[in-house]
Nucleic acid binder design. Structure first.
Lengths: 194, 194, 194, 194
DNA sequence: AATGAATGAGATTTCATTCAT
DNA sequence: GATGAATGAAATCTCATTCAT
């Protein structure tokens, strides 16, 4: 039941936004009563917090599994992008709620979540830095800004990408990886993208 | 006074979000009363609509000036990115409200704004397409996905970039343009980007 | 267990008041669940009723034992005051709940309790009346008002008297009896207060 | 209107108790809406606080006027008792709310009110002490306990005394003063009280 | 004897909006 | 132009109570 409430809430938060979704909406959407909601959650905010925590913790775990892999930094970057994008099919709504509604958490919970989110970003930055050190990437990159660029690109796809549309998630991941690695300029002798 | 209300509202919407900001908050923040607000605006939503319209119309106008320039597509892309990022200093808050709060407009207004926003995106897509046709960019690019990538990257900077920090807006624009044009991979014989 | 619930409830009702204390509070305070509460009590009000009844019935029984004693009316009055005050140590919380929360009983139960409470008061009044008739007390006293005065004095002590403080209950009872019997004015030839 | 709300609330709080009285009850009883209530009061508790403060501040002011009079301590005591009792006609309900509902204030407000209430009591104690020093009262009295006794007696009258009944307020005040000053015991040579 | 899940009714509070002045 | 009073609809949350197990 708690699961059911959470799923229904994610779906509603995604469609209408957190503050526009009422407890009544949530209760109605699963055929229960408001009382039931409060039996499982202390408050609306606590529900949001749980949604955020579950999301980022799972994402971090999977990301760190990739980072700890022994492949090249190019491959790591590809894998991280692919993970984010192919996650849209299963976790798109949860992701969108995560990106959009953090503001509605209490100060303290915002801090907790932001720390994890920063860790996620710093892991990407660290792939870039390792790649520079290993001679895989250009020497004078601002690894922090590149990390932000990758995140912006990938996160934004949650707002428009249709995983069941014409382009497959893995295709989009390939396109984005290629863009980040090799850019878009046509050059003589440019090797095929990966 | 209408101007004053708008500015105060943008600042509050940015900090607390549209639905969490009350008319009372707005009135308080300019030392007026709620009645005054309703003298200048029909409703809270109408204010939000005006904020959105002013923002996107201005942005579009400036973007289309760039697109109609006779420079190369590389340069157009650079100019578009630079415009977005250097706008953060002056219009950061307005931009953030634009990106985040569109959901709170009425259906019909959402449609109106989305049309303009799409036009903005399609203009970028069209730069990519022209560049491909002109042989400036790689031939097999998905211009739509590239446009989304550029937008994601640039828009996301509204969430973290400090225009008065260590990196100048034009620097960040250069870094991002370079990334999009030439990627991050170090290659023999790769010419310096721009 | 019923006993345990009652004791815990008295303590909570005393601290937080009847309507502010929840069944959950009661259950928590004895490490049980709300279901358990309802196994032993039909409702929150029934619990309050039992608390009231037990209290007043016991008090009445003890009071009437005193009244039926063959001692003087002065002594009876002293004994009644002493009983009330020395009861604070053991039954202070119950007494405070009794005095404060009667309003939350159902009409009918209020009537029942008030009848007993009145009987308690009328017994005091009757001591005064007997004392007047016996020439122990002043002839023109309003025995009803004197009874109210004694009750007010004694009951109020439930709100401030610390039985484990500097003054012993029997001392306070002596002070109050002396006050009621002989007043506070210094007079020539006034005998020492008992 | 604020006045109207306050009066209506006092009457309801007296009849049903603070926590059992709803904002809806209050609004209904003056033919207004809940919104109106919240236009004038921040919360239910703030209303209660204002009721408490107004009551005790007014009472203290009047009491201290009496205490600063140049009359004898006997007369002061009489005047204080008379003031309390004759106040029942006009302020009975407010007084009952004051005595019963303090618990529902927030910790901090309880502290504020209790300080004033204590001052009221200490003023009575101080009359007793002065009377002892002046040789008006018996030398070995516990002035603190006597003050509590007077307060208990007088306050309790708020619970039963009908100012429009057979006994006049000033009569009751005389009876109580006489009781406190001279007691109830019939003695040879005891002069008439007052 | 005890519990955990569920509920329904209602309580406090918030807030966009209206309107007479 | 501007305001203060008032409102009504709705939102979050509470809680006594029931009931199947």
């Amino acid at each position: 039941m708690k699961e059911k409430i959470t799923e229904a809430s994610i779906s509603l938060f995604e469609q209408k936004g957190f503050s526009t979704t009422t407890i009544q909406d949530i209760a109605d959407s699963i055929g229960a009563t408001k009382g039931t909601f409060y039996y499982y959650f202390k408050s609306k905010e606590q529900l949001l917090k749980e949604i955020h925590l579950e999301y980022i913790i799972d994402l971090l775990k999977r990301q760190e599994a990739i980072v700890n892999d022994s492949t090249s930094n190019k491959e790591k970057l590809h894998a991280v992008i692919e993970m984010l994008i192919s996650d849209i099919r299963k976790n798109g709504p949860r992701g969108r709620v995560f990106f959009r509604e953090i503001r509605h958490l209490a100060e303290e919970n915002i801090r907790i979540i932001k720390k994890e989110r920063d860790r996620y970003r710093l892991n990407i930055e660290s792939i870039i830095r390792s790649g520079i050190a290993a001679g895989e990437f250009k020497p004078n990159l601002r690894s922090d800004m590149v990390a932000f660029a990758v995140l912006g690109m990938a996160n934004y796809s949650y707002n428009w990408f249709q995983p069941d549309g014409e382009v497959e998630p893995s295709e989009l991941a390939a396109i984005y990886t290629s863009l980040v690695l090799g850019g878009i300029v046509k050059e003589n002798g440019t090797p095929e993208n990966h």
